[in-house]
Write a protein that binds this DNA or RNA. Structure first.
Lengths: 341, 341
DNA sequence: TGGGGCGGGAAAACCGGTTCAGTGATGGGA
DNA sequence: TCCCATCACTGAACCGGTTTTCCCGCCCCA
């Protein structure tokens, strides 16, 4: 039966009290006697009453929802486990609180801005999560303009005061390089994600630094865009050019897998002739042969921490910068010592 | 600046009219003169007014949101491109309408029911999408009990009258089998998803039927659970047992890739000694070597169609059963003619 | 000249809650 | 005994819109 949902007026009528009293009783606030409260709770239970989130939002000013816009082409989005892990972490934090998650997937960064703006204007969200921060990201200006609570998932930039949740990617890059150097690699190429992302730059800077410090013979960074095709193209070029590297480090898992295919194509043995390291470990990395060594980051943990921080800020807390647990290198079969050819 | 958002009262005051008049003007309804309407629209524009979705929902009774709960363990969810493609299709349909998407990810089917129930009780959604229908699915009873609009993504079951959006999986199974038979395969094993899903049963029935019709020497179905580990286990068992099949058909892409690894482990050449077919084509299938032949289904199209149908139903339309375009087999390098050993 | 019809708009009720300002009854202290 | 607190609860305003009701003024036509 599609009967309409009971309201506090129904409860009030049944209990013979005013709606105000019902409100107090249902919210465990002083103002009603214990016996009346119990009676009201019982009636509410019997009627199957649940608070209308809409009505509550109207007075409370709170929407009890947070928003996330993901701006990546559907093609790469589908394959990359990152976002689903992130979302899953977000849900953990939202679990049984009153807050819901609004999700928008777009492949157009103007649409992303519009989405945030609209959600805020319509009062649909209390705050938002920002992922994949770019340099000079227009979203920063937007949230400032709107005064909309926001938490950045990514590096804390000195210049802005937005709260963020971050992982020490730079340290992980160093760990990877030291590991590869220990295996005897001296020519290492990093296949990076899009340069406009702040986290790409952070990793690039760390890579260059560490390479210099370790006195690497050759350490280059070539840009790609997270997609399998771009990675394949770039890998082919790098491997067939002169002075081919003996190790490749990728900025995501999909690109690393794509490179694995290219190596097979070219008859280059992994890990005997070429070592591969993926970023963002996922079961994809364990799936392929040889299984990929990868840097594992606490993605779900990040998502959960970000939501908690956001809710804290919405509730009036001060902006903080939260660091999650460190990434760790998970060595598998795609990395090995350099063998002289 | 975090200035509060303007309301129609602000507009009314500025324009020197009542809020009712403003409402008419902003909604393009008769009741105000053309000149007043223009004046009001202009003021609204200048003030940067946007309707409060919350307030609208309170009167309209519409939440302007639809809900989707995905009940799969995070581990498999992350890797499987299916859901992100689906979500991306859903967004296409929602695009610039007033409707938002509420997403919940859970790994507990009781929590799934709770989520739907709560969304509805709280008036957060106008309707929901149901994926991965199980036999005797408690969600069917739930949406009936609540009178909550819902669209099923999956086979139309004769017994219930819920609207659904479906793809002719059975035809695709037949196509795959005919293709494999044409290549000379007579011993084919299908590695299925969890049996409790209705779509698994549909495919199983179609598989068994077609196998009988084609007079296959051996056609078995072994159950798995969409995860890479289960697929690896099952594949190992099947391939090392007596009378090993020459072709394997999988119910998703992850399992097929996992099997590819197992074949490599066992020194079985693909496609020379073993053909593999994945379901739900994704760029993962193109990524691995050899690239996987796969059945491509219009997943995003399904998502979009489902949302459109749901909105139609919410608006009072009659429940329909919508069939999306047919799946097609995309042959790649993982399938080939049987070679006598 | 009077009545009917209609267009433009005001006023108020309403949606489902929350919250504030009262109010009558009770109890306690001086 | 009087006064003041306190308790338990009511009534009403309020959040930001939508919608219904009603009213006024104007035009048209008989």
């Amino acid at each position: 039966m599609a009967g309409k949902r009971p309201t506090i007026s129904d409860i009030a009528r049944e209990a013979g009290v005013s709606t105000g009293a019902v409100s107090y009783a249902l919210n465990n606030r002083p103002g009603v006697s214990e016996s009346t409260r119990r009676r009201i709770l019982e009636i509410a239970e019997r009627l199957g009453w649940a608070p209308s989130s809409v009505a509550r939002s109207l007075t409370g000013g709170r929407a009890n929802a947070v928003g996330l816009v993901v701006d990546r082409p559907a093609r790469v989005l589908g394959v990359e486990p990152y976002f689903m892990q992130l979302i899953s972490g977000i849900q953990d934090a939202l679990a049984d609180g009153p807050t819901a998650l609004l999700l928008q997937v777009t492949d157009d960064s103007a649409a992303e801005l519009t989405a945030y703006r609209r959600w805020w204007a319509e009062g649909r969200v209390d705050g938002v999560l920002l992922v994949d921060l770019r340099t000079e990201d227009p979203r920063l200006a937007l949230v400032r303009e709107l005064g909309m609570p926001a938490v950045v998932l990514g590096e804390p930039a000195a210049q802005d005061e937005l709260p963020c949740v971050w992982t020490d990617d730079a340290a992980a890059i160093v760990e990877v390089l030291e590991y590869l150097v220990a295996l005897g690699h001296r020519r290492i190429v990093r296949v990076a994600g899009p340069e406009e992302f702040v986290h790409t730059r952070t990793r690039s800077a760390a890579f260059t630094d560490a390479a210099r410090r370790l006195g690497l013979e050759e350490a280059r960074i070539v840009p790609a865009d997270y997609s399998d095709e771009a990675a394949a193209r770039v890998t082919r070029r790098v491997l067939t050019g002169g002075r081919a590297p003996t190790a490749l480090v990728f900025d995501n898992d999909v690109m690393a897998i794509s490179a694995l295919g290219v190596a097979q194509e070219l008859g280059i043995a992994v890990p005997e002739q070429l070592s591969l390291v993926a970023w963002d470990d996922s079961s994809l990395c364990e799936l392929v042969r040889p299984a990929l060594s990868a840097v594992r980051r606490p993605i779900a943990e990040r998502g959960a921490a970000a939501v908690e921080l956001l809710l804290e800020i919405v509730a009036g807390g001060a902006p903080r910068k939260v660091k999650t647990s460190d990434p760790e290198l998970v060595p598998r079969s795609s990395t090995g010592p350099v063998t002289p050819r």
